[in-house]
């Protein structure tokens, strides 16, 4: 498996895709901060030229991490099946399970590297260009939130890799991923209004707890990860998702024909 990981690392670092994606994401965050900065300069009463406002865009929508993770998976692996790369690896005797695990590891490492670059640009430019704002600890709070959701983000990447092995049609892959990531949690939350048990399970789904237990606005931030219980919830749910999606992926991979 190490050989496969090495080859993938070589391929990813020697092609433009991940650099372009990272540059686009970092560029967008920089652009947001520059716009806020210029708006603040032009109008002294403009209340949004602050670090806390800028960072609140991500803090209140950490599900964005899952979507960006999905984009990373697509950029890295979408053509594997179409271009016959997977066939070669299988024909060379790399087991399907090792391929799945190898891809998941590579994807997680690459995503974290990309995330670090984007965050440095995002947070760095915000701190350099903008006023502090009403939340003095916005930066550590956001970083804590990201750290808490990192395992979950990786789990959703693993889910998408598993879905790629399940469906040949890309659109169905994304649909399956979205249904598990957002539609089922939403539906569970609605059913949970009537049935307590379902409601309790739904509360542990990231799509729901990130919507309901993270309140970020101009007067302050109240985040799930501010309390040890909240941190535990994020981490435990992340580990459960990783184990479940990983097991699903291994089972699907075993039967995959390429």
């Amino acid at each position: 498996m190490m050989n496969y990981i090495k080859s993938e690392w070589y391929r990813i670092t020697h092609t433009k895709d991940i650099y372009v994606l990272t540059a686009i994401l970092a560029g967008l965050t920089l652009l947001v901060n520059i716009v806020l900065f210029l708006a603040g300069k032009a109008d002294k009463s403009f209340p949004y030229a602050t670090v806390s406002f800028s960072l609140s865009n991500l803090a209140c929508g950490l599900t964005l991490l899952f979507f960006v993770g999905a984009v990373v998976v697509s950029v890295l692996f979408a053509q594997d099946r179409k271009k016959g790369i997977l066939k070669n690896a299988v024909a060379y005797g790399i087991s399907r399970e090792k391929l799945f695990i190898g891809k998941s590891i590579v994807c997680a490492v690459v995503s974290v590297c990309s995330l670090v670059v984007v965050l440095v640009v995002y947070i760095g430019s915000a701190v350099l260009l903008l006023e502090q704002g009403v939340v003095p600890d916005a930066v550590p709070s956001l970083l804590k939130g990201i750290a808490c959701m990192l395992i979950m983000a990786v789990a959703f990447e693993v889910l998408l890799i598993a879905a790629y092995n399940f469906y040949e049609k890309e659109i169905l892959t994304y649909l399956l991923w979205y249904v598990i990531m957002a539609a089922i949690p939403r539906l569970s939350a609605i059913i949970g209004l009537k049935f307590d048990v379902v409601g309790k399970i739904a509360a542990w789904m990231p799509y729901n707890y990130l919507s309901n237990e993270v309140i970020v606005n101009m007067s302050g931030w109240e985040c799930l990860w501010d309390t040890p219980q909240g941190v535990a919830k994020c981490l435990i749910s992340g580990v459960i998702a990783l184990v479940v999606f990983g097991a699903m992926g291994l089972k699907i991979s075993k039967k995959m024909e390429v």
């Binding site: 016959g84 024909a91 005797g93």
Partner: peptide, 17 residues
């Protein structure tokens, strides 16, 4: 299978490399 070499259907390679 490490002792085999294969071309089946289209040859598989990365177009960007």
């Amino acid at each position: 299978r490490k002792r085999t070499g294969v071309i089946i259907e289209e040859p598989g390679f990365y177009p960007q490399l």
